[in-house]
Amino acid sequence: MRLLGKRPTWLYKQPVRWAFLAATIALLLSFPFWASRYWIDVGFYVGLYALLGLGLNVILGEVGLFNLGHAAFWALGAYTTAILNVRLGIPTLALLPLSALVAGGCAWLISSPIIHLRGDYLCIVTIALGEIVRLVLINNPAGLTGGPNGVIGIARPVFLGHVIRTPLDFYFLVWAMVALCAFALRQLQRSRIGRAWNYIREDEIAAEAMGVDVRSLKLLAFVLGAALAGLAGNIFAAKMRMVSPDSFTFMESCLMFCIVLLGGMGSIPGTILGAALVVLFPEIFRPVAQYRLLFFGLALAATMYFRPGGLWPRRRAVEFTAGRAARP
């Protein structure tokens, strides 16, 4: 029974979905071999924002926690890489997991006292958090962050003797991470943990009454989302070879928020699509640069009006692997 009209069921047929996935992967793999250097770089940024969007999607999309300070965790990952690499000479690639750990650990410390806040209240606290992190970086504590100039001279990452230097190399590095994270997050979505996150988003009181440990699961989502931002921070620092506080403004947090809302809350392909749109839109409208933000705003408003669930909302269905349950 469908009360809300017919869905195009052929789109959801398994072979169609596999074919679509294969076509997407083929496009992403072949893209840098026929595109110009400039567009390969654009492709890199799509991947970078997809990674950031996937992290925020766990917090905002899956659990429904309004986090408008996600750039702070991105900054923490980037600065961890920059400082440890420049000061101690630890290889940049080896800092990839460490950046995620530091960002995740800080997220745990920071969010523990505020995680019980609801809706708008949490939103305001996270805005403040993002600004505090940025201002601390500008103020150069203990001479570590280099103040407004940031940290320069980050070494290029080396992977099995191959120096990652060209736009092509970075394109593949970032998209490999996106693929890995998207896979892991999809596994989580279809598990007890992913469902519990959604229960909390739908109705926190009912979730609690049904045995969901709301606090721990919210913390887990926050830490995981921040850790992914930390990963993105490491790759970003390695690519730019410098970090400065200008990169981690409130505007960046807003962009990530838009990525998740545009794509569809809790939808992994939606988030990647959202990242592509948010990065490509300014590129396409470069000729009319002064009206870019206007168009961007219009597009967002139109999406919210015509497709409030996002451009690619998550399809909800549990594959019933247990077979038809026997009647007792």
């Binding site: 469902r195 519990a196 959604n198 739908e202 049904m210 045995g211 549990v318």
Partner: peptide
């Protein structure tokens, strides 16, 4: 109920 989730997912909540 968890309104935007399926009936099966809703019922699975009890087992969490």
């Amino acid at each position: 109920l968890f309104k935007n989730m399926t009936c099966l997912e809703n019922t699975m909540a009890g087992q969490h």
